[in-house]
Design a protein around this nucleic acid. Structure first.
Length: 512
RNA sequence: GCCGCGUUCGUCUAGUCUGGUCCAGGACGCCAGGUUUUCAUCCUGGAAAUCAGGGGUUCGAAUCCCCUACGCGGUACCA
């Protein structure tokens, strides 16, 4: 009997080769959604078995990225200070902690385990030592390709080197690898959770290297062992792993382990349909955060790239909680999806409208600080109160946080229109325009400092406006903002405050 | 080369398992109109897919079968 039939465990197992790729982020998201929907665990494991591709700081950066999206890790690796459960420091990464019963969760810390299992397979005759040089390997591969045959290892070491000889070579420190002995003439089939039945012939599968000559395992060995030891129940990974799944299934069989369920996600593509790459834009998820996209919008958008809520559902905006509730592998699309940020922009604008003003203020702060007009603004233009007023007006116009203030720099700098033409509304004459401006000035002057609010300003100004409101309102806007396009003069005057508003009007009246 | 997976509006996709309600629905984007003092928001409408192509099965196919094309992935002591 199983200990707990309902346990549901998934993992995200990235390699620390740089940043968190959007594709990887989506894989992590889908894993997380599935885990949470099923009240299961989401495990983070680090697959650092390729010493050549290792990038300093990448492990930390990876976890950091996940953290910034509030994708909570239940077990595995954590950043220091971000782990609440009982944890121990990682052996290989000083800033990383590990927590959970199936650790270590970093493959470079599990080398002994892989070696033990690989040797077990050799003993059972399901794997063998190979001493061939990479030159010879390359040679036979090229020959097979020119002969239009599938490229496979020719089993030289299996057929020509006895176990005793092999043992002797190893004792003499001759470098070796351990290869999987793939049985001949068999069919391997499995039910992929998104693709359905997939069939492979073992005759076309290469004798995969399991243990490299540097003592590190390859992905295939480490992955199967870890997924088993960590009791993973569903493997959700990118489509690039589909072709190697039969090798993994073979390993589960040889070890006599119950195999997990597999789900292979479609790839994310460039606009030209090639695999999403660095060449054609940013592919690190953290870059999008830096560009002013909200984490909610990014999660929302990425979730919809390859998944949909199902028949008849037309909802487009999803919170993380809603995604957890509605997510299902049944509705994962099979074809690749082009990563086109147009819809992301729209979603982001929607999300900016949804979050609270306080929240928007906090999140936008670092973007304000990057702006020249903000830096050079007067002190009283940088107060929380003032910025929040600006944000009330910008909230429904913003697409990205990085756009903050861009269209409305007059809130921070004096940009006064001086020519009459710039402030005249349609067919109004110069003198009419002046008259209207004076009227506005007068009206605003009569509003008491305490009554200086949006509602009052609008009420009083509209009372003075004639049938064609533009005659009064357009010159006022132009004078207050120095622009022909802007939020309404009521809003602008309200944010600017009585004193500043009157000054701007007077200054123009003096010069024209 | 060999193996595998995929292919519905420009893009994300619904519909495919359980053929008819689909001369294919929604969203983004685009265009037009409306609301508004301008911009944005918002509202309304429109253009946009011979369902990759061909052949079958069927009274009937986007949906089932076969072939082809194209795209992508794998084919590493990379993951």
């Amino acid at each position: 009997m199983l200990i707990n039939k309902n346990q549901f465990r998934v993992r995200f197992a990235p390699s620390p080769t740089g940043y968190l790729h959007i594709g990887g982020f989506r894989t992590a998201l889908y894993n997380y959604l599935l885990a949470k929907k099923n009240k299961g665990q989401f495990i983070l494991r680090i697959e650092d078995t390729d010493q050549n591709r290792f990038v300093e700081g990448a492990v930390e950066r990876l976890i950091q990225s996940l953290n910034s999206f509030a994708i909570k890790i239940d077990e595995g690796v954590f950043l220091k200070n971000s782990c609440s459960s009982k944890s121990s420091p990682s052996k290989n990464y000083p800033l990383v902690l590990e927590a959970g019963e199936s650790g270590p969760y970093i493959q470079s810390e599990r080398l002994e385990i892989y070696k033990k299992y690989a040797e077990e397979l050799v003993t059972k005759g399901q794997a063998y030592y190979c001493f061939c040089s990479s030159e010879r390997l390359k040679e036979i591969r090229e020959k097979q390709i020119t002969q239009k045959k599938p490229a496979r290892y020719d089993r030289y070491c299996l057929e020509n080197i006895s176990p005793e000889e092999a043992q002797k070579k190893i004792e003499n420190k001759i470098p070796y690898v351990i290869r999987l002995k793939v049985p001949r003439g068999e069919i391997i089939e499995f039910e992929d959770l998104v693709r359905g039945k997939v069939i492979f012939q073992t005759d076309l599968i290469d004798d995969q290297i399991l243990l490299k000559s540097d003592g590190y395992p390859t992905y295939h060995l480490a992955n199967v062992i870890d997924d088993h030891e960590m009791k993973i129940t569903q493997i959700i990974r990118g489509e690039e792993w589909l072709s190697s799944t039969p090798k993994h299934i073979l390993l589960y069989k040889f070890f006599n382990w119950k195999e997990p369920k597999f789900a292979h996600l479609p790839l994310l593509l460039n606009p030209d349909k090639s695999k999403l790459s660095k060449r054609q834009g940013d592919v690190a998820i953290e870059d999008y955060l830096k560009k002013g996209y909200l984490k909610e919008a990014l999660i929302n958008f990425v979730a919809l790239l390859g998944w949909n809520p199902g028949k008849g559902e037309t909802q487009e905006i999803f919170t993380l909680a809603e995604l957890i509730e509605k997510f299902s592998l049944n509705h994962v699309h099979k074809g690749g999806a082009v990563f086109d940020t147009k819809k992301l922009d729209w979603l982001n604008a929607q999300w900016i409208k949804q979050i609270s003003l306080d929240d928007l203020y906090k999140r936008s702060l670092k973007f304000w600080e990057q702006k020249d007009f903000y830096q050079s603004a007067k002190e009283d233009n940088k107060t929380e109160k003032y910025i929040k007023k600006v944000l009330i007006i910008e909230k429904e116009r913003l697409q990205k946080l990085s756009d903050v203030g861009e269209e409305n720099q007059f809130f921070f700098t004096d940009r006064i229109a001086t020519s009459l033409d710039a402030i005249r509304w349609k067919n109004s004459t110069s003198s009419e325009t002046k008259t209207y401006l004076k009227k506005s000035l007068n009206t605003l002057e009569n509003i008491k400092e305490n009554d200086w609010n949006l509602k009052n300003i609008e009420k009083h100004l509209l009372a003075k406006a004639g049938e064609k409101r533009g005659d009064l309102l357009f010159p006022l806007r132009a004078v207050l903002t120095g622009q022909k396009k802007s939020p309404s003069p009521f809003e602008v005057a309200w944010v600017l405050g009585k004193k500043e508003s009157l000054e701007r009007i007077e200054k123009v009246l003096d010069t024209i």
